[in-house]
Amino acid sequence: MAINWFKYSAPTTFYPLAGKLIPWFAVSAAILFAAGLYIGFVVAPADATQGEFYRIIFIHVPASIISMFLYLVMAGYAALGLIFNTRLSSMMASAVAPTGALFAFISLWTGALWGKPMWGAWWVWDARMTSELILLFLYLGFIALHASIEDPRRADRAAALLAIVGSVNVPIIYFSVKWWNTLHQGSTIKYSGTSMHIAMQQAMFIMMAACWLYAIAITLMRVRSIILERERNSKWVAQLIEVKS
């Protein structure tokens, strides 16, 4: 039996599939969030040096990792859309962007909240914090460019090109910021998570999975809205139950 791999690459078939998948991702994200937060805040012991303050890493670390990874996902979808001219890929790219920006913001915000009691400052010009901030700017640039072009096809292609240029630039920016920082001064405090307690590890992994599932669920929800908006004049949209009623 030949499997048609491209069956779900059309908005017509992807829309109902996404609708079926969303509850699964959303519910499992909610369950894992509850479990992760419970283990992180109740079960895991207080840290020897950082006390209770360290618990914010259960949100901070997953948010940072996902914010970086989502940029690659976004650029990947954008590139697919640009190269193969598939509409759904471009829609996915613009659906991923706000979630990526949100995670970058959460990462900066929780980092600041953790930095105040630990370093005594809301913000230090640490290499990682600075590159996270620049990442947020890159997301905002993508969203702003997409939003300010009226024609959706041109917006997709222009934003895709920007995302690709950005992803080529990300390593250059990262290393330049890193060298910039080390040239000025060494990192004030080094992160030493060598021997993590087992409950801490569990909480971290569960929170990571929860953030992933949340990101997938919310992206699918957003891409469904985008599909409806773009295809509003087509026949199959007019026949949907949720559109009719």
Binding site: I134, F137, L138, L140, G141, A144, L145, S148, I149, A158, L161, L162, V165, G166, N169, I172, I173, S176, V177, W179, W180
Partner: peptide
């Protein structure tokens, strides 16, 4: 990329400035 857009000037800075950070550094 911002050719012919309304408010292209501010948008242009928003897109380009982050990419120029390595040069500045």
């Amino acid at each position: 990329l911002t050719l012919g857009l309304r408010g292209g000037g501010v948008l242009l800075s928003l897109l380009v400035l982050p990419l120029c950070i390595p040069v500045l550094i």
